[in-house]
Design a protein around this nucleic acid. Structure first.
Lengths: 199, 199, 199, 199
DNA sequence: GATGAATGAGGATTCATTCAT
DNA sequence: TATGAATGAATCCTCATTCAT
């Protein structure tokens, strides 16, 4: 399921990138039903044989795409966990997540679903885990508790954010600022109500 | 795409029900990858020919299943919109949603995803629309505003609930009470923060 | 690797037989290089889908053909082991083997080779084992020893017969009587020389 | 189908040899199913492009391997035909054949089978022909007849030897002396019984 | 109505071979 | 001469759907 060949030459790297992007486009245009390797290859301007030089099977392509889309967000979420204040951490967190989702909402939603089926080996944790962990760290670092309760809270916060942002993307919202404000409100409202911390 | 024939006789109704339940089981066991009409028919104890007597195509089965799972919840959500108080309305709303998701979490998640692809004609609104509308009515009836802002708020509330409940189901949570409390907290926290209404 | 569906109706049985025979013909005509499921189906006058209704994969077809060709011979060889005299046993043994090989020599050779690659589960022993065992029984029952030496001898006898008959088939010999006489001579000559028994 | 270029330089000869040996190894390890040019090239430590510089196509590699394996044996068998006595001739013949087969039994068996499919042009006769001819010469030179009967006998003798030695190789026998004795016994027993000559 | 045999388009993957660098 | 990226025909197999019985 891993990339078959490390693209050694520049040309190869381009080919790999083209395949992954083609996969993204096809998923956006036609969904999983229309997502097949022949079309991906064609859209990438590459022969089907070349596609299989770089990816051992279809899932490997999806996985590569998943990584490409997920990793920058993961990194941003992790950084948010190290913010100087809780408020700023949440803000960064939400900003990153919103920016990610509004960039390619259809794709984000499809990959989000597919993530469950594709066992990304340990190397890349599921997005949900990464996000929840970053939030847990943020809470812990700013006196909002540790332990099981804090873990549940951080998972809930992540779920709130994901649910709202996902729905907004699906609805076609484009105003990032507004969405960020609402998501942040929901998250701090939750913290408030759960008496975890008052913001 | 609609059921091909209204089951006139009791036996037919049983057959239809068996097919739909078989579809549910297969989706739960093997996901979309293993979901095919031949297996559904076999699991239902029915010939593939009979299956196609009752359903014109595969999507029609999925749709029937979607309806079967969704309609009771839709009805419950609508009722919650008519509750005597906002607090009670939210509570009923969350109770219904949590009960639904925890009953068959895997199935709920898969259908939730598939809902986007299957154009249920107007007759049955998407669950999200129904839920958001019920919440909007609830807010309106208890002095929490109307108009665009309220519509956005109700959609957000629905998204918060769906996000949290979905994640809980995926994680295998089983304590409905606890989950309900957290979801309610998140929703009222949001209303609070957004200055829509103080609960 | 086993037949997928027991042909319940007469029509099905015919289809299965047609597929197996088509496989035989294609192997004879074009060898393993030209042996592919699409051509087998076409030659059987059946759609590729039907072929896969009865056989889960290509090897299963080869296996069915192997059984069809091998089982009668196996049975005949086993019977030869129970002959009233050593001479008659050898004669029957050789007759059966020669008749088998001269019937469809090309096919016999190809399947003989393929047998090594296809692990027929215990049910059907490899032809070589069956034949050698029958010969061992024959020798034992007529005072030609048991134990390791007899086992080696029976394997050698089988190998002699197979080698000669195979080569004759490949060369296009058609005179069964003559071939039988030579093979019998070789086998009894071996027994003689090895001082196992004098015929 | 012939080697594309005569290796003029030493390095080329090494490359060719490496390719042929790689082919041998892969055939031994994975059989025909796993025998493909890309893997052969990789195993030979050569690029696929280089492989095709020396061999015009895959069959040419197999053929070169066949020659490499077959020629020394052919030569030895021919020499056996010139032995001073029939007994010594048979002995040399069997020794050479046994030594060949026990060296790389799996490879020998595979190539034996493939020989039928690859039309080695006249230059190199099929092993069977060479062996049978050597035996025919041996018989003729020692008063055991000429003509059709002797030709048949020599073919039978070769078939006996091949059959026994092949089976022994497949079974994993390693005791060359013992095997030689049994094969010689079978051959002389045959000559005896067929009244061709008494040894 | 029910059955299940049959269909065949569609899709994943392999691998011999070429050719630009 | 060597390289290895690229090619695409060939092949295995699946599955939604039809239709004769």
């Amino acid at each position: 399921m891993e990339p078959r060949k490390q693209p050694a030459q520049a040309r190869s790297a381009e080919t790999v990138a083209a395949i992954v992007e083609a996969a993204a486009r096809i998923l956006e245009d036609k969904g999983f039903r229309g997502y097949n390797t022949n079309d991906v290859a064609a859209r990438a301007g590459v022969s089907i044989g070349s596609l299989y030089q770089y990816f051992p099977n279809k899932d490997a392509i999806t996985k590569a795409l998943l990584r490409r889309e997920t990793e920058p967000l993961s990194a941003a979420l992790e950084q948010a966990g190290d913010a100087p204040s809780l408020a700023e951490g949440l803000q960064r967190f939400v900003q990153a997540a919103v920016a990610h989702q509004l960039r390619r909402p259809v794709l984000a939603r499809l990959l989000d679903f597919e993530e469950a089926r594709l066992p990304l080996q340990a190397e890349v944790g599921a997005l949900g885990d990464v996000g929840a962990k970053a939030l847990a760290r943020l809470l812990a670092r700013h006196g909002a508790g540790r332990g099981a309760a804090a873990r549940t809270a951080s998972r809930d916060l992540f779920a709130i954010a994901r649910g709202m942002i996902d729905a907004a993307g699906e609805r076609g919202e484009t105003d990032a600022r507004d969405l960020e404000a609402r998501v942040t409100a929901a998250m701090s409202g939750y913290l408030d109500r759960m008496k975890i911390i008052a913001l």
